[in-house]
Design a protein around this nucleic acid. Structure first.
Length: 462
RNA sequence: GUAGAUGUAGCUCAGUUGGUUAGAGCAUCGGUUUGUGGUACCGAGGGUCGAGGGUUCGAGCCCCUUCAUUUACCCCA
């Protein structure tokens, strides 16, 4: 049979892994630098843990796992299963009789589930990071995969906006180290709720933000047309006008929003939070990223209640977001633990990779196929045994070294191997070198070689 | 879900209005070189042209069906 992998999934070869790990390492270091501890959770969760947390669209994109040993069910149960299956063919329908498990859709909901289950062992505020793949049954396209890694950092059990500030600092530091120019958009769900409250249209708030978000694409008239189509009254649209025209600095936008939201308690709270962030952001010495208040940023995930974040590369043609996050006031409440507010962000490694590839941002040092520093050529059994002693000496000193395992007719083959793996040095130990206790060291880049003592070799490679 | 694009060698792709035995580059293997790679030269292997059906004396090319991949919209990391 012809081998293939499911669509939306990918294999990663050594060259790609080298670069992916470069990203993982930077993120992991920063997570630890800011005080987060690692956890892992299972790939699969009970389906009831996941459903209802991501909005209607999100729920449909959850990969479900068919119950195992369904065929062993009793006959009377089989009839029920058949009915459930038929129903699920007719409409979007979750039946726990068929699929009681599903692949995790993100890391935040499993984290909330973890917190509730481990409440008594945790010290709050609990700061965790988590680097694991998630799965979404989306149609794949550019920058969109069905299996991809998220790198999450969340603080739970703290209401303080200091957490938001720290996250912004960590985002800045991480993207600065990755050397990616980034536009970090932020907003606050309370402002969106406030706008809905003022317009008395809480069910239409998503339509409104989506429409205003298209301003760049379809112009002001297009936006007004779309709002009308969505059933927003002319009066409300007129009222909305200052928001459609919203522009300028973050501070200017706050002034406009303040007057718009005067009559909304929740809106005023949102403004207060935004102002706190803007007033204190300077003390963070943000050097790298650009911060922009964007009231059209809504984010589909149901659980967000306060600050929301989204980051995109500020250069090149790759437009999908590479980071998302926000505050959720009561995600653990669903699992029975009330009153724990959390805030977190998620880096999308796969998209960060795509951006870095496009902008050619990977440093030269990770653009190689292997980390081996020296290959010892194989001239036969006796020489090989001698070389094995030599490599273990080198490895003890932290020098990445390997031997060529097979005896081959043409020595050239071994040099070709080193060349293809981009190994910088090849050591040759034949009869002469063995009796002299030396090694012929060839520099693959320059093509030159010289006979060295073992001490000289070590000095050369260290 | 809606719309478009593409399926030819391991990979990237040519292939003329339908006409002999379907090509190239890269990769692989062998040789020029039995202690030396990357550059050069010579040679070899490798194809049910995505699958099924139709039109035709004749189909990689035209028609139908189907599958796969990919891009955009929606939503998302």
């Amino acid at each position: 049979m012809k081998p293939s992998i499911p669509r939306g999934t990918r294999d990663f070869g050594p060259a790609e892994m080298q670069k992916r790990q470069f990203i993982f390492n930077i993120l992991k270091n920063n997570f630890q630098l800011f005080g987060y501890s690692p956890i892992e959770t299972p790939s699969m969760e009970n389906i009831s843990t996941l459903t209802g947390k991501y909005g209607e669209e999100g729920d449909q994109l959850i990969f479900k796992i068919l119950n195992s040993r369904i065929h062993e069910s009793k006959d009377d149960k089989k009839e029920t299963l058949r009915n459930e299956f038929n129903t699920s063919l007719e409409k979007s329908y979750n039946s726990e009789l068929l699929t009681e498990k599903a692949l995790r859709y993100d890391l935040t909901v499993p984290f909330a589930r973890y917190v509730v289950m481990n409440n008594h062992t945790l010290t709050y505020p609990f700061k965790r990071y988590q680097i694991q793949p998630v799965w979404r049954a989306d149609k794949p396209q550019k920058g969109r995969y069905r299996e991809f890694y998220q790198c999450d950092a969340d603080v739970i059990g703290s209401n303080s906006l200091i957490n938001e500030l720290e996250l912004i600092a960590m985002i800045d530091k991480s993207f600065s180290e990755l050397n990616i120019p980034v536009l970090l958009k932020f907003n606050n769900r309370k402002i969106l709720s406030g706008i809905a409250e003022i317009l008395n249209a809480s069910d239409k708030i998503i339509d409104i933000t989506v429409a205003i978000d298209k301003l760049d694409k379809i112009g002001k008239e297009g936006v007004i047309k779309e709002l009308t189509e969505k059933g927003i009254s002319a009066e409300s649209i007129a009222q909305l006008e200052p928001l459609i025209d919203l522009s300028g600095t973050n501070e200017n936008k706050v002034v406009v929003l303040k007057s718009f939201l005067q009559q909304s308690e929740i809106g005023k709270k949102g403004i207060e939070e935004i102002e706190f962030l803007l007033n204190n952001i300077n003390t963070l010495s943000i050097k790298h990223i650009t911060l922009e208040l964007d009231i059209t940023l809504a984010r589909g995930l149901n659980y967000y209640t306060g600050t929301i974040f989204e980051a995109k590369a500020n250069a090149g043609t790759f437009t999908p977001s590479i980071l998302g996050g926000g505050r959720y006031d009561d995600l653990t409440g669903i699992f029975g633990l009330k009153g724990l507010s959390g805030v977190g962000i998620s880096f999308g490694v796969d998209r960060i990779y795509d951006v870095m590839e496009e902008l050619n941002l990977f440093p030269e040092s990770v653009n190689r196929l292997s980390t081996t520093k020296i290959l010892l050529a194989n001239f036969g059994d006796a020489e090989l045994l001698h070389c094995l002693g030599l490599v273990s000496k080198l490895r003890a000193l932290g020098i990445n070294a390997e031997v060529y395992p097979d005896v081959v007719k043409k020595i050239a083959k071994q040099f070709e191997y080193a060349d293809k793996k981009q190994i910088p040095f090849v050591g040759v130990v034949g009869g002469n070198e063995m009796s002299n206790n030396t090694i012929m060291l060839k520099n693959m880049a320059s093509g030159t070689q010289e006979e060295l003592s073992i001490e000289q070799l070590i000095a050369h490679l260290s």
